[in-house]
Design a protein around this nucleic acid. Structure first.
Length: 585
RNA sequence: CGGGGCGUGGCUCAGCCCGGUAGAGCGCUCGGUUCGGGACCGAGAGGUCGUUGGUUCAAAUCCAAUCGCCCCGACCA
């Protein structure tokens, strides 16, 4: 039902309300949420990755924001409203002015000072905290806001799912110590669950990489959909769940046998790929090959060793090496480093110690202890067999680098992993003292020691959440909103407005429901019933009251948009029926 | 940033190869008939064919540049 704080009154008659539905699908929309939000008159694109929210969408957005606000306040959050435009100095202090690169929108004021549009607000909140918080007695604090965030994404896509300008609820916790942070983090975790539950979503919290923002215990809240860009691995049996940028899996023992005492070179003319070597006489199956990838990590050459049938996850490579810029080496860089071309590369005999061109040899954990393997010989058209990793290769670092696949063993029980696509609607993680250290936000403890404030960061993308609900809940006819975030609870469809009796009955019902706090939209347009039914389905209002032919018996139809089930209700009892239904939702 | 595609009334698209008076459906306006799952008939309004330059007697159409948008990849709280 409606609440005083977000009441959105006014005469909600479709004939004068702006809901520009489209009869056909927009040409440039691929994913369901994009297609439906445009077609149902919720959003319009202004430019790539930038959308206008029309009245219906703004109603949904405000409802989502109100749910978030209530749950943040419940755990002691205090709402702020911070600037979107930030001085470069602040971001230089934290080091992110450089780190963010092209993803940050930048501008210059009339005096020539560099400014940036906020991507998140760690810096601004920390700058407030460092000036005003000096004592452990002032902690903990939970501060949050909902503000427009700007990110100059290289490739905006999928409607509201990946944009360059969007509303984010971002919250930050400030504690004296790790124990305090642990508590703040747990509170946020449960608040996030409450928020997504209330939005009617099925979601999965997963372990994740923290990315450029830095931090630990990164947890993403994911909603399963093929429109999502992330892949997550989930074990139904024990509940293990992780982004593939983080996930590990349990693989069967390869059962290697002893090979020769030293690697043997053999000619492999024309062999360039793992596949080629499988089929080559005297070659090896993919899981007995060592794949050697050459990467440039912050301008240094690194060899990345993977099992032949495994795929590298670049985020894992970044996380495990602490690199900022990572890319595959170009053909000429490869030849210069190893003296051979891709297809014949290997790490045997290569050393990262002084003088060499290679500065790091990093290998995936699954190669540990492997013996009698086959790999490139660093001589075109030649390979080595009988390679035992620990004996023959000087690995500098072992790490989990591979991308797990569906069906592989769960790392924490004897179940199996399911890997699927999902969209990230929320992200919480422990920042620790990253920003308080770099920006000098310190407090005195009870013992009189000066310590950096321990921080946490907690974000939710509001419009993305809206789109995720649509992805999660729609059918061929349109959107199906849960009551909690629906733009209206009920739509009253008058089948023929030229019929005085129907019109009057519709108006009366509308007045009655509205007075009772039910958010109703009266479809009083002079359109044929079919058009109105289709539009009602499209915009996704959860219940429809049809004022039509049953009126003669003093009844109207009450239809559930999601189940398509309808019942005839005496017009005098509509409000009661709705009350029961809406409360139950 | 690499690859591909597309810019023609409000929307979805045809016309472009092969240069010669700008089209359809939907939507919109007016009149009439209809009226419970995107009606029908009649009459209308509405377009610098993304932009700039070039070729030509003549350019939506050919050439060049440029801008924008979409998709795939790279990248990404």
């Amino acid at each position: 039902m409606s609440c005083a704080c977000c009441s959105q009154g006014g005469f909600m008659r479709w004939s004068s309300y702006f809901i520009p539905t489209l009869r056909e699908d927009p040409a440039d929309a691929e994913v369901a949420s994009h297609r439906l939000l445009v077609r149902a008159g919720y959003i319009r694109q202004l430019t790539a990755g930038v959308y206008s929210l029309l009245p219906l969408a703004q109603r949904v957005r405000l409802k989502i924001m109100q749910i978030i606000r209530e749950e943040m306040n419940r755990i002691g959050g205090q709402e702020y409203f911070l600037p979107a435009i930030h001085p470069a100095e602040l971001w230089k202090e934290s080091g992110r002015w450089e780190v963010m690169g092209d993803n940050m929108f930048r501008l210059r004021d009339r005096k020539g000072a560099d400014m940036g549009l906020g991507m998140t607000h760690e810096e601004v909140f920390t700058s407030i905290a460092r000036n005003a918080i000096n004592s452990y007695r002032q902690l903990p604090q939970i501060w949050y806001q909902m503000q427009t965030k700007f990110r100059d994404e290289a490739r905006p896509k999928s409607g509201l799912l990946r944009v360059r300008e969007f509303t984010m609820k971002d919250a930050y916790s400030f504690d004296v110590d790790r124990a305090g942070l642990d508590k703040s983090f747990k509170d946020q975790y449960s608040a996030y669950c409450a928020i997504f539950d209330r939005c009617g979503l099925k979601y999965t919290p997963v372990q994740a990489s923290s990315g450029a923002m830095g931090g630990s215990e990164s947890t993403e809240f994911m909603v399963r959909t093929d429109a999502g860009e992330d892949h997550i691995a989930v074990c139904e049996k024990c509940g293990y769940a992780a982004n593939v940028e983080k996930a590990t899996s349990r693989l069967p023992d390869p059962g290697d046998e002893d090979g020769p005492a030293a690697p043997e070179t053999f000619p492999t003319p024309g062999v360039r790929t793992i596949e080629d070597l499988i089929n080559f006489p005297g070659g090896a199956p993919a899981d007995r090959q060592i794949k050697t990838l050459v990467y440039i990590l912050d301008d240094k050459v690194a060899l990345v060793l993977m099992r032949g049938d495994h795929e590298l996850n670049e985020t894992k490579l970044i996380d495990s090496t602490g690199s900022l810029n990572v890319r595959p080496a170009h053909a000429d860089e490869i030849r210069e480093a190893l003296g051979a071309s891709a297809g014949s590369l290997g790490a045997v005999g290569v050393s990262s110690s002084a003088g060499g061109k290679v500065s790091l040899i990093i290998a995936d954990d699954t190669l540990k202890g492997r013996r009698n393997m086959t790999t490139g010989a660093n001589r075109d058209d030649h390979h080595l067999r009988g390679v035992s990793i620990e004996r023959d290769i000087r690995v500098d670092k072992w790490a989990s680098l591979r991308t797990v696949k569906s069906g592989e063993g769960c790392p924490s029980c004897d179940g199996a992993l399911d890997v699927f696509k999902a969209v990230e609607v929320g992200h919480i993680f422990k920042l620790g003292t990253k920003y308080s250290d770099s920006m000098g936000a310190r407090v005195l403890t009870a013992e009189g020691a000066e310590v950096p404030i321990v921080m946490g960061s907690y974000g939710i993308g509001v419009e993305r959440l809206m789109a995720a609900v649509v992805e999660f809940s729609n059918d061929e006819a349109g959107i199906i909103w849960p009551v909690s975030v629906a733009p209206f609870h009920v739509i009253i469809t008058v089948t023929n407005v030229k019929d005085e009796a129907l019109s009057t009955a519709g108006e009366k019902l509308y007045e009655e429901l509205t007075a009772a706090g039910v958010e109703a939209l009266l479809d009083d347009r002079d359109e044929r019933a079919g058009v109105k039914f289709n539009d009602a389905d499209l915009i996704g209002v959860p219940f429809r009251i049809t004022v039509g032919k049953k009126l003669k018996e003093g009844k109207v139809e009450l239809l559930n948009r999601a189940t398509r089930k309808s019942e005839d209700v005496e017009i005098a009892k509509v409000l009661d029926s709705l009350r029961v239904i809406l409360v139950r939702q």
